[in-house]
Design a protein around this nucleic acid. Sequence first.
DNA 1: TGCTCACATATCATCGATTATTCGTCAATC
DNA 2: GATTGACGAATAATCGATGATATGTGAGCA
Lengths: 272, 272
Amino acid sequence: MTEATTRRATRDRLAAPAPTAPEAPIHETSMAETPVPMTPIPMAPGALVGDGKNTMASQLVDRLREAIVSGRLEAGSKINLERARERFSVSLSPLREALARLIADGLVVFEDNRGYRVAPVSLSNLAEITRLREEVEVLALRQAIAIGTVDWEGDVMRALHRMNRIERDPAQPETLEQWEAYHREFHLTLIAGCRMPLLLNFCGVLLNLNDRYRRTFLRRTPGGDRNVAQEHGEIAQLAVARDADDACARLREHIHRTGTNLQRHLAGTLAP
Amino acid sequence: MTEATTRRATRDRLAAPAPTAPEAPIHETSMAETPVPMTPIPMAPGALVGDGKNTMASQLVDRLREAIVSGRLEAGSKINLERARERFSVSLSPLREALARLIADGLVVFEDNRGYRVAPVSLSNLAEITRLREEVEVLALRQAIAIGTVDWEGDVMRALHRMNRIERDPAQPETLEQWEAYHREFHLTLIAGCRMPLLLNFCGVLLNLNDRYRRTFLRRTPGGDRNVAQEHGEIAQLAVARDADDACARLREHIHRTGTNLQRHLAGTLAP
DNA sequence: TGCTCACATATCATCGATTATTCGTCAATC
DNA sequence: GATTGACGAATAATCGATGATATGTGAGCA
């Protein structure tokens, strides 16, 4: 039970700064902070209850990622270390370590002696993300359909159900955030059955990058006139029915349409 | 004047520790250090004379990557920070930052409060690497053949020529190292024409991971009875001739055969 | 007016010391 | 005799301070 004491002390130390206000922007431009209440994120699959995120650096990775994907940290903006240090109430070492890890996600870019900055967005970047998702996510799905277990089927249906039950109300931003989280989990669960860690990791990165575009440009009109829920449902049904060709075709269309949609919105944002 | 003094001091500081002995093993096990004389590496393409690697952390990334891919740092072994700090003559901050960046390469794994370790090797990991290389490297090649410029064609032929001119003499380890560098560059150049940064980055990661297996298990008998040089030549010729289907088929076979070869050697190492 | 160079300032990079956590060991207990 | 809990050594994580680099500014000159 001495251990309990020690642990509790740590938890307090770590928990204390969290409830404070959501991070204000670090970059020089933009100061209107969207008061998003930092959802108690149902983080990436594979995270056991007590295993991860005990250190400053690891928590920072999540906080920074969320801040970037949500658009609170403007694309392309410089990350001033001193201000970020204050904002997140940490020291330089864990901050730099967290940023270094985020390079892997493609959300942060770095240059020697010039520091870190939020990865920029561009039409070509979006096009590549879409194209690669079509290829690798479909590849993963095909493999998942081939070797996925019954448990995997169950996971897929559960993820689908949870996502579709969320009522997306623009007046309640937290419902949008929640849907984003479930949507991400749905796509990851769909392919998780393939049991190829490197591939899943890469798909997760692409999904993150894609989500940043959607959350920035399609915040309230996610599907346009599409019935996204139906698309998801069909893909899931075909997948658990082990109809590989049709499931993959539908997933590919789904990704492609989303990409086209985003492309249009982004072009509208950049051009005028 | 003052500035000149400052700069000179810095350069000396950075240059000084480099020529010292090659890094001895950091991990607890294994103490017989292969006295590989740390080739003055013809580093990754795209490195201008003065652009990158000015900081301790960035230099460390390269040194550590080389140490891991070459096998000097044993797969799966724990990386003791204090010993690594001494060995590489740096402080903890840049060391941790460098290790954090190497997570992206899949060469290092991390766990909160348990530190960093060299990524383990396994048959399933090798199988996935091979499978993914077949898919994504071929995808990249097809795109490169579709849109690659004449400059790209030239780059491919040059890379092929340089690689094939190296005489691989097991008695002269530096020739093996040199060939590895050129070989890596050949494969990357072959697909560089596709102009998809994310895809190229992923291919580079896979190539690195693959090279670790080859350099560990196929150090002196790279091709078995295969004529690897001829395989490379044919792929290059087909690529610049814009024969996409044949080039991709050959590349896929090439990757697959290499994988099978490695699988056999690795199985022989793990089993008995 | 436009350019170059020195200086001041802001920022990034690194270090050494301090704090927190884990892991091995051993004694106490059931 | 096995399990549990407490200690101490080893190691990881964090911090505050210092050193190095880049960037902005203005004087001097063509």
